[in-house]
């Protein structure tokens, strides 16, 4: 069978596609900005020696890591309004779901990174009389973050890919826009191939950037103490 390709549908809808891509990036960025500090907070709670702080944090991480992102999103979008009367739009639901999801994953990265800092650093910081927050901020985290950065960037890229689930709750991201165009024009093959290429290029760019950052980190040398 011979299929007549027609890519004019892409150029005709270029503005719409880029608008969708913008929304995808915006959603991802918001989830990163909320998820990262939230992840740090959860990690600190988990590292706490008080059981009533560490235990809920553990449950939080385990629950959100064990359930699919889509189920979390549907729960927020379909179930939460029934439970509370609070109605979330597609964007809000997706932003919250992705923030929580990434915080659960990132908290594990934070925890690993902080745990990897040698006891000597903690002792030294305590020895000069630093408070816990100051110790974290000036001694522990700067060393930990440097080590964790590549993992973080990798997770952020995963998050960008996962953000496509927002289309299922009618948020106008790139995938949603593509579906919308394909319903109107029946040019499904061209449109879906085009957004696959768009995602590919954006993610390839991000992962190349990640590699560049890793490379620079590696070149500038390991200054963290063990």
């Amino acid at each position: 069978m011979h299929y007549q390709w027609d890519f004019s549908v892409i150029s005709d809808n270029a503005g719409l596609l880029f608008w969708g891509l913008g929304n995808t990036l915006l959603l991802t960025l918001i989830a990163i900005l909320i998820g990262t500090p939230l992840g740090l907070a959860v990690a600190l709670l988990r590292l706490s020696s008080h059981r009533w702080l560490s235990w809920p944090a553990t449950v939080y991480v385990e629950v959100f890591r064990a359930t699919p992102a889509l189920v979390q999103l549907y729960w927020l979008y379909f179930a939460l309004p029934r439970l509370t009367g609070l109605r979330l739009g597609g964007f809000e639901a997706a932003a919250i779901a992705l923030s929580i999801l990434s915080s659960a994953f990132l908290s594990e990265v934070f925890r690993g990174g902080i745990a990897a800092i040698g006891k000597g650093q903690w002792d030294a910081a305590r020895g000069i009389g630093l408070s816990y927050p100051r110790m974290l901020r000036t001694i522990i985290l700067p060393q930990a973050v440097r080590r964790m950065l590549p993992v973080f960037l990798e997770r952020y890229i995963e998050l960008l890919k996962t953000s496509t689930i927002a289309a299922t709750v009618s948020f106008g991201d790139l995938l949603f826009v593509a579906q919308d165009i394909s319903y109107r024009t029946y040019r499904t093959l061209e449109i879906f191939s085009a957004i696959a290429v768009m995602f590919f290029l954006v993610i390839l760019l991000c992962s190349q950037l990640t590699r560049l950052i890793e490379h620079r980190l590696a070149r500038s040398g390991e200054f963290t103490a063990r």
Partner: peptide, 11 residues
């Protein structure tokens, strides 16, 4: 690896 799996499924 560089495209979302949901896009792959839909494709």
């Amino acid at each position: 690896r560089n495209t979302p799996v949901l896009v792959q499924i839909l494709w």
